[in-house]
Amino acid sequence: MPDPTYRAAIVGTGGIAHRHAQSIAALGDRVQLVAVAELDADRAADFAREYEVPNVYAGADELLANERIDLVHVCTPPQTHAPLSIAAMRAGVPVLVEKPTALSLSEMDDMLAVEAETGVPVLTVFQHRYGAAAVRLRRLLRSGALGRPLVAVCETLWYRDEDYFAVPWRGTWDAEGGGPTMGHGIHQYDLLLSVLGPWAEVRAAAGRLSRPTDTEDVSMALARFADGTLATVVNSVVSPRETSRLRFDFELATVEVEHLYGYSDDHWRFTPAPGHEHLADLWTADAAAPPSGHVLQIAAILDAFDAGAEPGVSLADARRTLEFAAATYASAFLGRPVAAGEITGDHPFARGMDGGAVPWAQTRKETTA
């Protein structure tokens, strides 16, 4: 029996929306893009024409009221993610939202409350979890074949020039929620967290070193995990030779990947410890495996829908990643370690990633006055 055809819609037609539309098209008869919502009528028409979308709406509310949708993709600027997701949940429509899921832990908690009330899930785009090598790594770690994790390195060293930040919402706390810690490196350290599990403490530093932003353009964190593993996490948008790199040192092997915006199996390297060379047989690369990306995550969501299972990445899971971002900022700006579970309720860094404590905020106000 053929898989059922799901009906999808996209809200927002900026750059990342094209990735979603292309991924939906790549899944063939499993899912159809039936509607799009966009405030800019000309851009909406161009997008609908390019991807053969039959229905175009001026806003999300109109779309949700008039279409039967199985999954709505939220591809708008970050400050709209939480309100649009809540509106979709109240309309009974599951959501796939681009990162960051929300601007703050407080917004995440509001979303979790509505999810509990409605029973409608909100899922976050963390597509790098779904690549074949990442799935293999988590399986081998759970099996005990690699021994316990000891050390990890996570680096997102990207380059964004001043023209990139000319878009009004970029590089602002109110609209983007943060700098590379929120908007760029989050994909890499989400993958790190999906492998290593619960973190216990973060010590961090952050700076606005070069770019004309309100937010940081570099952050560095040292994380201690619940099992004692130590990891460094670096997020940058001032690095001319761009790379995304993860390295895991287990007792019995090192597993590492270097790529940029998406990896294939060929980007990974497996090095067994001396005396454990036989473990290399467990790392069987699949040259035919598709690269990490939106297609794999959307397919996994549809598989979960088919099976009546809980799809990923859930709000509760995404909140743990967002809490790591909040702890990075809090530690950097308060100058002390921050423990997991510390940022709750009315904590300043629960209300916003800047926590009202950005050390260069006054300097920027003076220089722009």
Score class of each variant (00 low, 15 high):
Ala350Val: 11
Tyr6Ser: 02
Pro77Ile: 11
Ala8Lys: 06
Glu115Trp: 07
Thr13Ile: 07
Gly179Val: 09
Thr254Met: 13
Ala307Leu: 08
Pro291Met: 08
Gly293Cys: 04
Gln297Ala: 05
Asp61Tyr: 07
Tyr164Val: 08
Val358Trp: 08
Val135Cys: 02
Thr284Glu: 14
Arg364Cys: 05
Ala145Glu: 14
Leu322Gln: 07
Met1His: 10
Asp266Val: 13
Ala48Lys: 07
His18Thr: 14
Val295Phe: 01
Pro78Arg: 08
Ser236Lys: 07
Ile186Met: 05
Ala325Thr: 10
Ala307Asn: 04
Ala102Ser: 14
Val195His: 07
Thr368Asn: 15
Ala87Asp: 11
Gly335Trp: 05
Glu38Met: 10
Arg68Tyr: 11
Val257Gly: 02
Pro274Tyr: 12
Val34Glu: 02
Ala25Ile: 08
Glu176Cys: 13
Gly28Lys: 09
Leu137Gln: 02
Thr101Trp: 12
Val72Phe: 09
Lys365Asp: 12
Ala280Arg: 07
Thr328Val: 15
Leu260Met: 14
Trp283Gly: 01
Met89Arg: 02
Ala231Asn: 00
Val95Ala: 03
Ile24Gln: 00
Gly312Pro: 09
Glu310Asn: 06
Thr232Gln: 06
Arg364His: 12
Ser23Arg: 07
Gln297His: 07
Arg7Ile: 01
Gly15Cys: 06
Tyr57His: 14
Ala133Gly: 09
Cys154Met: 06
Thr367Phe: 07
Trp199Ile: 04
Tyr263Pro: 08
Leu27Glu: 11
Val234Trp: 01
Arg148Val: 04
Leu222Thr: 04
Gly185Arg: 00
Val338Asn: 07
Trp169Asn: 12
Arg336His: 11
Glu67Gly: 08
Gly177Met: 04
Met353Pro: 12
Glu107Val: 03
Ser292Met: 08
Pro54Lys: 11
Glu201Tyr: 07
Arg90Pro: 03
Ala152Trp: 00
Val295Ala: 10
Arg30Gln: 08
Glu310Ser: 09
Val74Trp: 04
Ala82Asp: 08
His184Arg: 10
Val238Thr: 15
Val36Trp: 00
Ala41Gln: 14
Gln297Trp: 05
His294Val: 15
Ser143Ala: 13
Pro78Asp: 11
Phe250Arg: 01
Arg336Ala: 13
Gly293Ile: 00
Leu279Arg: 14
Tyr164Gly: 09
Val122Met: 13
Ser210Asp: 14
Asp163Trp: 09
Tyr57Thr: 06
Asp265Cys: 11
Thr243Ile: 11
Gly144Lys: 06
Ala339Gly: 08
Trp158Asn: 10
Gly345Tyr: 12
Val36His: 00
His81Ile: 04
Leu192Asp: 03
Phe305Leu: 04
Ala221Trp: 01
His267Ala: 14
Ile86Met: 09
Gly197Phe: 09
